[in-house]
Design a protein around this nucleic acid. Structure first.
Length: 237
DNA sequence: AACCAATACAACCGCAGGACG
DNA sequence: TCGTCCTGCGGTTGTATTGGT
């Protein structure tokens, strides 16, 4: 598909690479003042020699005030694990269930930490299988360990329907998913009654930023996050 | 101390799809 | 209906940091 914006971004000299504190400051200050109205046109008035894409990415993955930094908790790991098992590499969907975490962060975390762990797990099961005389048991164990990687392939099947059961012992919000045959998109159908409150809270939290509204000047964004802005601008300004 | 490999994470790229004229 | 514009997603790459020798 021909896209003028993308063509333009190639011809206009745009800076690439790591963002400087000054650039961060400019972007934050601009969004604080004018809100998010059009990523592709924002860089210029904001005084940034960056592409709109780059600005958006920097904001969404790093500058957004509700970003939660630091290590993933056990609960978060579990959630990632279960959702990845259920829906595969749908990082944005997984991120929507983890307030403060971005799809990019989760994707990176998966590739660097969790995938490695599962590989190790599979290898250990392999070793166990070699040493075991019971072929059927070994086969089952391998199958269990391998599921996590096979999910990727499984989710490519458009007609796939996934049903996750409600686990009373699990504190993790666990919806029932259905893959839309036409678009391969997933619709949330229902939630465990016992987890509704938690799920709703998560959902509400994440929706605030997922929607990326066009903020009216001096509205929502200011009173919710003023402390954050002040501290950031102090640091960089 | 110097080098190299592994790891972690920020950022980029290409593409799909929705909105709109 | 078609073309254009914009946004968002997932895969991939680049680079800084850390750990081992």
């Amino acid at each position: 598909m021909a896209k003028r914006t993308q063509r333009c971004e190639k011809t206009v000299a745009v800076k690439k690479g790591p963002w400087s504190p000054e650039e961060d400051h400019k972007l934050v200050a601009y969004i604080q003042r004018y809100g998010i109205w059009n990523w592709s046109q924002m860089p210029k008035p904001a005084g940034l020699a960056r592409s709109g894409k780059s600005c958006r990415l920097r904001w969404v993955n790093y500058l957004r005030p509700d970003i939660k930094r630091g290590n993933f908790s056990k609960d978060e790991e579990e959630t990632i694990l279960e959702l990845h098992q259920a829906i595969g590499n749908r990082w944005s969907t997984i991120a929507a269930r983890l307030p403060g975490r971005t799809d990019n962060e989760i994707k990176n975390y998966w590739h660097t930490h969790m995938k490695k762990r599962f590989k190790a797990a599979i290898e250990s099961v392999h070793e166990e299988a070699k040493g075991s005389g019971d072929k059927e048991t070994s086969k089952n164990k391998l199958s269990e360990a391998g599921q996590l990687f096979l999910v990727d392939e499984a989710t490519k099947v458009a007609s796939l329907k996934l049903e996750a059961t409600c686990s009373a012992s699990s504190s993790v919000f666990f919806p029932v998913w259905e893959v839309d045959d036409r678009k391969g998109q997933i619709a949330e159908q229902s939630v465990c009654a016992s987890d509704v409150t938690f799920g709703e809270l998560q959902s509400l939290d994440s929706q605030v930023w997922q929607q990326e509204p066009i903020f009216p000047c001096d509205s929502y964004i200011n009173h919710v996050t003023s402390d954050y802005w002040v501290s950031l601008i102090d640091k960089t300004g």
